[in-house]
Write a protein that binds this DNA or RNA. Sequence first.
RNA 1: CGAAUAUCGUUUACUUG
Length: 384
Amino acid sequence: IHAIAKELRRCGKTKSLSKGKCIHDHLVATGLHNDLFLSNHLIEMYGKCGKLEFARMVFDGMEKRDSFSWNLMILGYTQHGHLKEALRLFTEMAEKTVVTWTAMIMGYSKHGQMNEALGLFKQMPERDVVSWNAMIGAYVRQGRLQEALDLFEQMPHRDACSWNAMICGYAQQGHLQEAFELFKRMPTKDVISWNSIISAFVQHGQLDQALQLFEKMPQRDVVSWTTMLSGYAQQGCFEKACEFFRNMPQRNVVSWNAMLGAYVQQGCIDEAIKLFYEMPQRSLVSWNAIISACASQGKLKEAFNIYNQMLQQGIMPDRVTFVSILDACTQNADLAAGKQIHNLVIRLGLDGDQYVQSAVVVMYAKCGTLDIARLVFDSIPQKD
RNA sequence: CGAAUAUCGUUUACUUG
């Protein structure tokens, strides 16, 4: 049972829906699907894969539910922006835990509903350090540093996450010195603290300082290495970037993506394509990176080719993919392809995104169909 | 009915604008 749970967890993390379904079928066949513990894992797996209807079917079909079942169902909704559904369950839930409240706060915060998040935070019966951190993170995301700092000082106990969130907040708002001061004042730094401050210096183009910290930190993880790699790439220090990539003790898909980005930034598109095919795994970011690189370098044939491979492999494009591939259509004045992509955009419900919308309008306009461009343009509720 | 070294929430790196 424990092994199955772990496997389901992995399916959720990697969004392997088909594998997860397989396990589900197997559980049904062996009658284990009534197990509370395993059902909770099924909810989580479907939730993480974005299959909320399936998650809900499991949830509704359970004879017994514990707070984990409810929390996981609510989390599934919040993480995919279905805040109304989440709120409905939240309201229905009898014994909310601090996790329930925090999950809702996170959901609101990640979708820009700051007032709702704050309202819940004020209302919750008790708060632990994670809820405080979640609220600090909410303010940080809004760039409201003073209010984040107020909470940081008000909270009964601060842990490393609290400090790290503040450090990142200052760095993101361009207050590198304040971030560094906080870092230095921090009592017990963890690897994320070090990575955060290194990233802060990288974001401000101070690679020398970043490197000093990188060398000084007690232990480095794959994030530390990747941060440096991508920092050098962004500065155009291609050789340095390669050196970090070669020397890193282990690589994950993000490190590979960063290296891909280094080639692209260098203008070595063919090398980038080669690397893309050689990577041990590809994530959606990898596909987006290579498609966008091809499109912006005028390798339109290649862009369409890779985009089609992506669809064939059953990988769901997102808004980033569409912005890039629509740009390729625009350059080619390829109306047929553009229309087809526009259809897919609508089918996937991404036609509400302002960047996708503007890419669609430009595509139709460049293809000589100004009337359609105008039609789409007029359908945009608020324009920038 | 109860128990449990079982499952949930917060902070850092990669792609478009």
